[in-house]
Design a protein around this nucleic acid. Structure first.
Lengths: 145, 145, 145, 145
DNA sequence: TTTT
DNA sequence: TTTT
């Protein structure tokens, strides 16, 4: 409505469990690592090629964050739409870093779970445990908020 | 068609003239710097806020690259759709850099010019000159290809 | 969020002035007739072809309805997104009729004006007059609400 | 690229098996009946409401038609994008009819299967049988091509 | 790091 | 007519 459009739309799979953090005010923020892939046949060699792209998705919208936390897991298929937003910061070694994320925040945000319904899907996540991710993905994890 | 979707859609304005480069094979690649903005009223203070986001758009599709080169200029309004793609590289000082771009390459790419028709719009750009931009937006310029 | 997506996105021009109606409760509903066109070269004959498609757009969202009423006119270029919705009714002669419309209602709706800024654009429409359209596009006009 | 955009995007389920027809030239055209639904809580009564919308999707693109014919079935979940196109015709009783369809034809078309992989999914449909639908959906079926 |  |  502001005269411009900024949207990123993904249909892909989670590379790991959602990462759940809490702000100092107690608001939950959920971060996803989503893979999309495209494949094509190389015109010259004829071989099948695949390119995988990893996207960092940050969910500020409370309702969507809760859904993501409770129902998405490593491997889950998801459809989502948010805004592109870039952040710049200086890391511990004084180097300037830059990251682009897909932010699900306002009303235009979309998150649709595409996993087939399983019984477990409706069980809420226990308060303790579950959302600590395995510690992999250090590069993305190290991005300050 | 590969079972995933990776799309970024922008409706915004160019921050500077398109940047036109040629690969060693003579293929033209056009890079755009596109601004989108969103504005909202701060709930606590009530003041009007605006956030501008800059996007780097790289056009590999020949037809769209030609249109961009010939008809887009600093300030032009454009609607476009492409794929998100991230690149990592090591800069001169040995530091690892990372950039996310919107790539217009395949069939799903879209580029629509939204400027009102002017006489000049149909005049092709001269081979010499034109695409040196004013030197603003330095951060994006410094990203190597 | 209900597990499904239903969206229509248009970038096109108004074929006539917006049509403004009021419900019995006094709520304004604005209807647009929007043209999109595609052109292609016929593979067999080589001639240039064009196909124009007319879309009926109904705006229930108050904010967007107000913008449409005040700033859109015959010929205006607009970008919008809404939901597809079909209606069936029986006309005066007892025949069953069917129409599909694009509804701008909820939070996911988008309406962006793409006309260049003119002074007149900011002048509100007078209460009397203005929204009688030229009488073209009769087919769409005859659809009852 | 023609200066306008006309897109419909659905994420929904098939209400019946795909309908496969052949043109006189032997080209296969596949028609889908896709449901999307939205649900909301009525503000005044507080009850849960649901609205289901049925969409007619016609696939002219050969590759996508083949995928739809082989892998989609009643109940399948699918993500797709095509163009809105309306047709008018006179039925047997001389009445003028009107229908809006989502056409998957050109390069911008998208079709993604969202069913979990089953063994059967990769088995091609036998030449005989399978695609005769139950004869329900008479209204849509009766639309001439 | 996912999925096909 | 689907699905949740």
């Amino acid at each position: 409505m502001a005269g411009s459009i900024n949207e990123a739309t993904l249909l892909g799979n989670l590379g790991k469990d959602p990462d759940v953090r809490k702000t100092q005010e107690g608001k939950e923020i959920v971060t996803l690592s989503v893979a999309t892939s495209e494949s094509w046949r190389d015109k010259s060699t004829g071989e099948r090629k695949e390119r995988v792209e990893w996207h960092r998705v940050v969910i500020f919208n409370d309702a969507l964050a809760g859904i993501a936390r409770d129902f998405l897991r490593k491997g889950s298929k998801v459809y989502l739409r948010g805004q592109l937003q870039s952040r710049k910061w200086v890391d511990q070694s004084g180097q300037e870093k830059y990251a682009t994320e897909i932010i699900l925040q306002g009303f235009n945000s979309v998150l649709v779970l595409l996993d087939p319904k399983r019984e477990e899907a409706s069980r809420p996540v226990s308060e303790t445990g579950t959302s600590q991710s395995a510690g992999d993905n250090d590069d993305l994890d190290s991005i300050p908020f």
